[in-house]
Amino acid sequence: MDPKTVHIEFTLNGSPRSLEIPGAASALWVIRNLIGLKGAKEGCGIGECGACTIEVDGKAVNSCLMLAAQLDGADVLTVEGLASEDGLHPLQSSFLEHHGVQCGFCTPGLLMSTHALLKENPHPDHAQVSKAIAGNLCRCTGYRQIFASIEDAVKHNSGEAAQ
């Protein structure tokens, strides 16, 4: 077998996926260019901005720093997997209500970092939120309305915010 292309199978936003990918491709590249989901963004390509954050097996990771090959066997969630047919995910609604979105380029990454945090800790305090999103840079908001969005979602979180 020529390992330059790799066969991977994983779950993406609840649906099984199976594809051939270049061995050194990043998860971000595969998700955006082979799968065509554009929610995860490339802001820096080197782990410095968090715009590409996705959830892999419940943990927030920078998809630009992860080999797509490492998604094999994993359960992957991107921002497109948050909202349901019935509408926005509670976290998304909270960002809308509390003006946590300005240009919105950082938004998907922030949602994924927060979503992963709430899975691990349904009621984080300010410091814990800060630790979880410090890898998500936002140049527009100064973070205040982002904290407000998250903290309100936490307040109303009876578990569904991590679903």
């Binding site: 989901l37 554009k38 929610g39 995860a40 963004k41 490339e42 991107t78 921002v79 497109e80 948050l82 909202a83 926005l88 998304q92 960002f95 809308l96 209500e97 003006h99 979105v101 300005q102 240009c103 919105g104 380029f105 938004t107 998907p108 949602l111």
Partner: peptide, 18 residues
């Protein structure tokens, strides 16, 4: 609510690179 926020929250392909 700000115009355009929902698309951005959903990760819709609205930016030029998308």
């Amino acid at each position: 609510p700000r115009t355009g926020s929902v698309d951005r929250l959903r990760g819709a392909p609205v930016f030029a690179a998308d």
